[in-house]
Simulated assay, not measured.
Amino acid sequence: MSKSKLQHYLTHIIKPYAYRIELFRLSNPFIDLSLLLLPIMKNLTQLTTLILNNIESNYIEQIVNHLSSLPVLSSLIIISINTIKNHKNIYYKIFRLPILKYCQLLIELLQCPKSLPVATNEFSTIEHLIINHEISIDQLPILLSYVPQLRRLSIGNLKKPKINRTERDSISLNYLTNISLKLHNVNFDDFEILVTNYFRQIQVLTIAIQYIGFYDNSTQYLNADRWEQLISIHMLNLRVFDFQLSYRGLDSNDERQAFETLINKFNSTFWIEHQWFFDHHYHQIT
């Protein structure tokens, strides 16, 4: 769309009827949001859903600063095409939106700021949270402390802790029943702490892990006995257990035999009674 057509569209369609718009979606990295969206945000009084896909990250802080002017916003999606430089208090400002229920974020280099404390008296109404950019496992509890109403959580790139995790703080997430995690270099000890403190009510757990090479640390999630103990004690409501583990470079016969020995331990009575069945296959990477 040319700049002149965009200006005509903005002047004659969007601005006059901004007060009637309930869903606003932008999916063009070349649109100047300072002309299209920011000037009318205070007039979007009926807007319930805001979707910003493939936008320049330099607009994000401005947009977040104006979100409080949207009184009925309940669904927010922000996906940037590049890394963010200034991310001060973005999480905190989103968590303060009064009726937000659904939030999906993909903002590269967006970190949980060190200045953000664990929530004590200000909480978010978010029930479904999706974070697809990188976040470390020691930052996650801080964010979870703000969302006690959370029911569904998806983390697309959960990384190893940036500091040694010794704390075992417990936060009540009594409604959190559905969790999906993609783990990167997170050891099983840290994962156990996460489950013990925050995931006691879960009913559906989806985990995806990928390793390059078959070595001691890469087999820790293949300990069937450890999984059985963790589930039996801390995940008593678990109904669906979708566990995807892949290796790149599992080539030698010894490695495959060791892998299959570990996998076969998931065929005990515990797993059969839960009707959780495991399978594996090898494929050539070209």
Rank of each mutant, 00 (worst) to 15 (best):
N65Y: 06
P98Y: 11
I63Y: 11
Y59L: 10
S68V: 13
Y59D: 15
S124Q: 04
S75V: 02
I78S: 06
K114P: 00
Y59N: 15
K93V: 00
N65I: 00
T125I: 05
E122W: 05
I94E: 06
P98V: 10
I79E: 14
N121I: 07
L76I: 00
V118P: 02
N58G: 00
S124T: 07
F95S: 09
I126M: 11
N58D: 13
H66N: 14
N58M: 10
V72Q: 11
I94T: 03
F95W: 03
V72D: 07
N121Q: 09
P117K: 12
N65C: 12
R96G: 08
Y92E: 15
L76V: 04
Y102F: 14
Y102C: 03
S124K: 08
N121R: 13
F95P: 05
S74Q: 14
T120E: 12
I60C: 10
P98C: 12
L76P: 03
T120D: 05
N82V: 02
H87C: 13
S57L: 06
P71K: 07
Y59K: 07
Y92C: 01
C103Y: 03
I94M: 15
K85L: 14
I60G: 03
L106G: 02
E127N: 10
I90G: 03
E108F: 04
F123V: 10
K93D: 10
I63L: 09
L73D: 04
S74A: 10
I79G: 02
H66K: 14
T120K: 13
S75C: 10
K85W: 11
I78W: 01
N58V: 11
I90A: 03
L105I: 08
S80F: 09
T83N: 14
L110A: 06
S115E: 14
N86T: 10
I63R: 01
I99E: 12
V64Y: 06
L105R: 12
L105W: 05
L116R: 10
F123D: 09
E127M: 13
Q111P: 01
I90L: 15
P113M: 06
N121P: 02
N65Q: 08
S80K: 03
T120P: 01
P113K: 08
N58T: 11
I60K: 04
H66W: 03
S115R: 08
S68F: 05
N89D: 14
I107F: 05
K88S: 14
K85C: 11
K93C: 01
I107D: 00
L105Q: 08
E108S: 08
I79Q: 12
E108Y: 05
I90Y: 02
E127S: 14
P71Q: 07
I99D: 13
S68R: 14
H87Y: 15
P71M: 03
Y91C: 00
E122A: 10
H87G: 15
L73A: 05
V118M: 09
S124F: 06
S69T: 13
V118I: 15
L67P: 05
N86C: 07
K88R: 11
I99K: 12
F95R: 06
L109F: 05
